[in-house]
């Protein structure tokens, strides 16, 4: 049996103000799997992503990435293998030009100029951001910023991608483009989102997190079609399963 690339066991996290964000959360993610995490606001989804990449350290339990515990000793290696796409791309883009921003990670990895150039070009190609290379990030639209933020992560050639509310604030065209890009990426992906249609199209397995605990996990189709389970967790059926308000018919795609 192939060991999971991400192994989370009984982790708990309490914020300094006493708010318990996660309680005994355990799950595994296989290599190249696309795994969705859904849940209401304040469920602990973003906290969980920050724990996976070592921005936060769990109060209890253990997280292993490729068998390595996420601790201070392994942090540099884990951050090479794992890329986190932040909820707000403005938090992620801080260099004068798009190219500089995409090259930031490879430069920190100690690559030489030629290697950096290759990484940057490949990341721009994969994310479709080549035409933006000399633009300052603050002049980009929301969709372009998200695509550039993704390129910044891809340029480090991570094995695992963590995405926090990636589809939020995108127009339908940019959202569709993002779904296409994500589905072409072969890396292991953990996608946190409230956009259940987005999860439907990008993830094969999904987990519901509510008040810091897992309330359900399983195949995307099964979980996302369970109206009672979703409503119990302050969610609702994906739009594609809600049927036409006029004739009541369904169109299921993806």
């Amino acid at each position: 049996m192939i060991p999971p690339i991400i192994n989370v066991k009984d982790i708990g996290y309490i914020y300094p103000d006493g708010n318990e964000a996660l309680n005994k959360v355990s799950f595994n993610v296989s290599r190249n799997e696309a795994f969705g995490i859904i849940g209401p606001n304040g469920a602990g989804k973003s906290t969980l992503l920050q724990l996976l990449i070592g921005i936060l350290i769990p109060r209890s339990g253990e997280i292993k990435i490729e068998g390595m515990p996420v601790d201070k000793k392994n942090l540099a290696l884990i951050r090479k293998k794992t890329g986190l796409l932040f909820h707000n791309p403005d938090d992620q883009l801080f260099c004068p030009t798009v190219r500089d921003d995409i090259a930031f990670g490879p430069r920190n990895m100690g690559l030489n100029n030629d290697e950096i150039e290759i990484c940057v070009s490949q990341a721009m190609e994969a994310s479709g951001t080549g035409h933006l290379s000399h633009r300052p990030p603050y002049t980009l639209s929301g969709g372009e910023k998200k695509a550039v933020a993704l390129a910044c992560i891809l340029s480090m050639q991570p094995e695992i991608l963590l995405m926090d509310e990636t589809s939020a604030n995108l127009d339908p065209g940019s959202r569709r483009q993002l779904i296409t890009v994500i589905n072409t990426l072969s890396q292991t992906k953990i996608i946190v989102s409230h956009d259940l249609d987005f999860i439907w199209e990008t993830c094969s397995r999904v987990m519901i997190l509510n008040k810091g605990s897992i309330t359900a996990a399983g195949e995307t189709g099964l979980i996302l079609s369970d109206r009672f389970l979703l409503e119990h967790n302050n969610l609702e059926l994906p739009l594609r399963l809600q049927g036409c308000p006029v004739c009541g018919s369904y169109t299921v795609r993806g």
């Binding site: 920050q50 990449i53 921005i55 540099a76 951050r79 090479k80 890329g83 986190l84 932040f86 707000n88 938090d91 992620q92 801080f94 500089d100 090259a103 930031f104 990670g105 430069r107 920190n108 990895m109 100029n113 910044c152 992560i153 480090m156």
Partner: peptide, 25 residues
């Protein structure tokens, strides 16, 4: 808080003690 988030983003992208500048040839 914003500075903290940006710093986290930098750490996630391998920032150690120093910011590596864009060396030209």
């Amino acid at each position: 808080r914003r500075a903290e988030r940006i710093h986290s983003a930098m750490l996630c992208r391998g920032l150690s003690e120093k910011i590596h500048q864009n060396y030209h040839d």
